[in-house]
Design a protein around this nucleic acid. Structure first.
Lengths: 236, 236
DNA sequence: TAGATTGTTAATCGATTAACAATC
DNA sequence: TAGATTGTTAATCGATTAACAATC
């Protein structure tokens, strides 16, 4: 991966989806697949699949297609899923706890090692065997243990400072669930999961779809569908 | 919004972010802002901001810029945030519960009305006052109550069937946290939150960054950083 | 009025799709 | 071999950026 040309974000974002489909094919004991067949399954063009894969190498064979297991393993390597990663959770609230309890991460090699919080009622507890520690001890922990990714699930007011500290202490990846944009140095990678934003775009698309047409569809389940009125305030 | 040209997905995805920044400005009692200033804050071009906004109308004024409160409220309307929405959660596991407990949704007008699950130990419980019901009663519920969005937080094996049923019963929006792609009719909108995929792209970007350079950065926190070895299997 | 900044058209850039020679 | 399908170049499409006349 050393001195090759930069892969576009659009391509990278599709890799996990390829990986998932290939895993499913593997499960179904399918040994080969053409870009054409895969394109039908995935609802994208065969051309795009071939272009995407050829960013990383020629994994196929003319007249044959792709060997499912081989391609699966190659993408696994490209995504770096052939090793394990150490993660910490910063913010032991609802979402933080849910992620700790999500056992599939561990099966894939994403190991949550510790949770940090400010809440005295949480500190000292364990969640699925993983300790919750005072955020004051985080600096020492990060400096003495390998931490590949910090999962940020804390209030938006606190996230920027914490991200900044973590970056200073050497953490290179932030998976940011806090509803704020983080300013970090160039050598730190941030991936945002803005759930509220995601829900908003969903609502926009629903509204768009049903305002473009006559009100026919609104009656789909036989009920009147006057928009409910917004009652109270907001902030997050 | 009736017979206007289709707005691209790229634009729609940026709207919540504009909304967030304008909300922050409003909080700070800033009354006006130019596309130039906002572009600096948001780290995008002023041109893009003006292009984006002009998809929906001319909200600014030459020589002045944009009135923050006015623009904020216009985007609020565009996103449909001036009304309330009824949501149900299908799958009362970790993530489902975390979303129910996330009180900020309600403040914005996203009201979770019910949770459905198959687990007898959950059925009959309440989470933050919201009932957990047998999934067998979901058809009746959906047909007799307005449901704007179903939040799917169930195992990937069950999600496609449930999504199909919900669509049949008239639910027009699916917020899909299950790690699978859903096949639904044209008049149903799906927004995916594939957490595992998101984490994978983050890891890719970290690996890419640190394989492009010499190993200097790996020493950042003074520790050796041999990749850990992947131990066990995977599936999700 | 003069200066600032929009709304919008035109230019550029990048990503997707089509086409096809190479070849298994 | 003949048929199938890749890898890759070329064409198209769409999104972003630049430029500037309109105008507050």
């Amino acid at each position: 991966m050393d001195n090759e040309k930069k892969i576009s974000s659009a391509v990278i974002n599709r890799l996990p989806r390829y990986y998932r489909y290939l895993g499913d094919l593997l499960e179904s004991d399918i040994t080969r697949i053409s870009s054409k067949e895969l394109s039908t399954k995935m609802n994208i063009t065969a051309s795009q699949i071939r272009q995407d894969l050829n960013n990383f190498g020629g994994f196929g064979q003319q007249g044959y297609g792709y060997n499912v297991e081989y391609l699966y393993n190659e993408i696994k390597k490209i995504l770096g899923l052939d090793r394990m990663y150490n993660l910490i959770v910063v913010g032991g609230g609802n979402i933080g706890q849910a992620l700790v309890n999500y056992t599939n991460f561990e099966k894939r090699g994403f190991v949550i090692k510790a949770v940090f919080d400010v809440n005295p009622r949480l500190i000292g507890m364990t969640i699925r065997g993983i300790g919750v520690y005072d955020v004051d001890s985080m600096e020492e922990y990060v400096k003495n243990n390998r931490v590949d990714v910090a999962i940020l699930t804390l209030p938006r007011t606190q996230a920027p400072k914490v991200a900044n500290d973590l970056a200073k202490w050497g953490v290179k990846g932030m998976w940011n669930f806090s509803h704020v944009d983080l300013q970090v140095p160039d050598d730190v990678v941030v991936e945002n999961v803005h759930l509220t934003d995601s829900l908003m775009t969903l609502l926009y698309k629903i509204n768009e779809m049903y305002s473009e047409e006559n009100d026919f569809h609104h009656m789909a389940n036989g009920l009147p569908v006057k928009p409910l009125t917004q009652s109270d305030a907001e902030e997050e």
